[in-house]
């Protein structure tokens, strides 16, 4: 069969175009002959998501992200290509999250219950979920602040106490100490109540360590940066520990002085006005402790460090 040049060129170019399109879609892992469904979701932010990030439903890969754009109202619209045939209910949500501790971000669609299904070009509700690492990092920072705050206030309190003790009576002091002991007892009880939470925190920690152990070599840099963060946290905590130690030392010193009846105690015994002040303080302190017991969250926000350790 004799083909004209036009036809030969036509065949060559057509074949090349077809092969190029098929090859391109094949390499991008797009179904070769079917138009995939495009849906989108709006998120507050899109840290860690990039073109090609995967989309999962119940842990099964169903598609990938193919477009990310910042909208006018400063949210992020992420367009996804869904290759799966399964219908996605209208009220499903798209969660931007991380599957493992070191995995990249991906989008997990939680199927809703609606009987109406999303169509091509439809939009899901988006949710930016903070990952474990992000929460840990944030919490660590907050904790650092909280602890140094607490120490500062504790110091202040101790200084005031020291001044107050100068002019108080031994009996009242006894009473005060007893009240304090009572307070301590109650705090211990609170701690006991929180025992489970502490345990679970420890559990989560050891799980995390387990996952860290199984890190693949290609996640190395991220682990490194993670380690840096962790080291920083540890350093912060070391500081906290040192400050706590010095606080304890001060407390010991004071208690020793009180035990020996030294210095200011004499004066304490002789000044009734101070006694009265201290008495009323004690009453208020009792009230405070009761309050703490009834509503620990309100008063012991700064003591939340105990939840962790």
């Amino acid at each position: 069969m004799h083909l004209s040049n036009e036809i030969k060129v036509g065949i060559t170019v057509l074949l090349a175009v077809v092969v190029a399109i098929i090859g391109f879609r094949f390499m991008r892992d797009i179904p070769i002959f079917r138009q995939a469904m495009q849906i989108s979701a709006v998120f507050d932010r899109a840290d860690g998501i990039s073109n090609g990030s995967l989309v999962y439903i119940k842990g099964v890969r169903v598609g990938s992200v193919n477009r990310i754009q910042l909208t006018e109202d400063a949210t992020v619209r992420i367009q996804m290509r869904i290759d799966s045939e399964i219908p996605i209910p209208q009220n499903s949500t798209a969660n931007l999250t991380s599957l493992g501790i070191v995995e990249g971000k991906s989008i997990v669609i939680e199927l809703g219950t609606s009987t109406e299904f999303i169509q091509h070009g439809g939009e899901l509700q988006g949710n930016y979920t903070e990952t474990m690492m992000e929460v840990l990092g944030q919490k660590g920072e907050e904790l650092g602040d909280d602890v140094s705050n607490t120490i500062y206030e504790l110091n202040l309190f101790l200084r005031q106490l020291n001044e107050t003790l100068d002019d108080d009576t031994r009996a009242t002091l006894d009473q005060t100490l007893r009240s304090t002991m009572e307070t301590t007892g109650r705090i211990a009880a609170i701690l006991e109540g929180k025992q489970d939470e502490i345990n679970s925190a420890i559990d989560a920690g050891s799980r995390m360590l387990g996952q860290l152990d199984t890190l693949a070599t290609d996640s190395r840099p991220r682990v490194d940066s993670l380690m840096v963060t962790v080291e920083q946290s540890i350093k912060d905590l070391e500081e906290v520990r040192l400050q706590l130690e010095s606080a304890t030392a001060s407390l010991n010193q004071i208690l020793e002085k009180v035990n020996n009846g030294e210095g200011t105690i004499g004066r304490l015994l002789n000044d009734p006005s101070i006694y009265e002040n201290l008495d009323s303080l004690t009453i208020e302190l009792n009230n405070l402790v009761k309050g703490i017991n009834e509503n620990p969250g309100r008063y012991l926000r700064h003591m939340s460090i105990i939840d962790i350790f």
């Binding site: 004209s4 040049n5 036009e6 030969k8 060129v9 065949i11 060559t12 170019v13």
Partner: peptide
């Protein structure tokens, strides 16, 4: 042009 498209393209495949 078509002659050359064949010689350059199709014949080089």
């Amino acid at each position: 042009l078509f002659q050359e498209l064949v010689k350059v393209g199709t014949d080089s495949v």
